[in-house]
């Protein structure tokens, strides 16, 4: 219980922090008043129309990436899985870049293109992973994920290289990742794509527990494994596509956050998933605040910040896992 209160308090605190940090220096009191609709109009506008959707979007994207990572880890029975490392983010990114460059218009088109890309990527990753035999080996699966991610990245590079200049700028800006384009509309688009898969994954919390025993033992304890796997592939692809289409490719959140929660909360998904959502949100709001302020007035892509945190954790995990 104390852990839940602590985590919720941290979430509230970083969201407030996210409202206070930025080019225009605002005190927490000014932020609070602006939230209540008092104070200068410009302050109210900055807090309500710029920083609030940005902080919330970062929070929900971080939470969704963390939940996706946790679900994928259960699915492939390996703590190294994450939407980025399994190539889903790359596939979604490729779909989104194609949509932007070829001007398939509208706020809704990019997420759909990203979803198609993510689904194709995970199908390809599985196909590659099964080349070595009928039984899925988690190591081969991760390798295929990295390969497919690299392939998607090079295709993105190719598309950008042969595109006219204005589209290139748009695609590059988007590709670097981040929440500069955050708005209430973007938040709405994201929520429309993310709420259902989040609920679906949470509903499967018990079968996800069972899956950690292996597919056959899970079936003997009541999990409909084939259906569960399909549902999880689609839900993970949707969440990744939603995240990628509003904020570009942000790696390692899905790896670092579930791992921290596993250490603190254990491995049962009934608590793991919501706790990972909260911590993922906290991490990405903080990462976004760092990205905006570390070299202000210049800002870093938020994916750079998460990678700086995530890569050492990944190395530690590989060392533990290899033993």
């Amino acid at each position: 219980m104390i852990r839940w209160i602590g985590l919720s308090a941290a979430a509230a605190a970083v969201l407030l922090l996210g409202l206070a940090v930025g080019p225009a220096d605002l005190s927490l009191i000014a932020v609070w008043q602006a939230l209540l609709g008092r104070g200068e109009h410009s302050t109210i506008a900055i807090v309500r129309d710029l920083r609030m959707p940005r902080a919330l979007l970062a929070f929900f994207v971080g939470g969704s990436l963390a939940v996706t990572g946790a679900a994928l880890q259960a699915l492939v029975r390996n703590p190294l899985a994450d939407p980025y490392l399994l190539g889903l983010s790359g596939g979604a990114g490729l779909g989104a870049v194609a949509a932007i460059v070829f001007k398939v218009g509208g706020v809704w088109a990019v997420p759909i293109a990203a979803l198609v890309g993510a689904l194709l990527a995970i199908a390809l990753v599985y196909r590659l992973a099964l080349v070595s035999g009928a039984v899925l080996d988690a190591r081969v699966l991760l390798l295929s994920g990295v390969v497919v991610g690299a392939f998607a990245a090079s295709l993105m590079g190719a598309i950008i290289a042969i595109s006219p200049a204005p589209e290139v700028r748009n695609a590059l800006l988007w590709l670097l990742g981040g929440f500069d384009a955050a708005s209430w509309t973007a938040l709405g688009v994201f929520a429309a794509y993310a709420v259902l898969p989040l609920a679906v994954i949470y509903r499967q919390n018990r079968p996800l527990d069972l899956l950690s025993l292996g597919e056959e033992p899970a079936a003997f304890l009541g999990a409909d494994v084939e259906r569960l796997k399909r549902v999880l592939y689609v839900a993970a692809s949707l969440l990744t596509a939603a995240a990628v289409s509003v904020s570009g490719i942000i790696g390692f959140v899905g790896l670092v956050v579930p791992h921290a929660i596993r250490l603190l909360w254990g491995h049962l998904h009934r608590s793991l998933l919501p706790a990972a959502f909260l911590l993922g949100g906290v991490l990405l709001v903080v990462a976004d605040a760092i990205a905006r302020t570390a070299f202000a007035p210049l800002s870093l892509p938020v994916g750079v910040v998460t990678a700086i945190i995530g890569v050492p954790v990944f190395v530690l995990l590989v060392r533990r896992w290899a033993k």
């Binding site: 703590p79 950690s212 025993l213 292996g214 056959e216 033992p217 596993r262 491995h267």
Partner: peptide, 12 residues
């Protein structure tokens, strides 16, 4: 069922 092979991927 107590099946032939089973290995928990995460500690329990």
């Amino acid at each position: 069922v107590v099946s032939q092979r089973e290995e928990a991927a995460f500690p329990l």
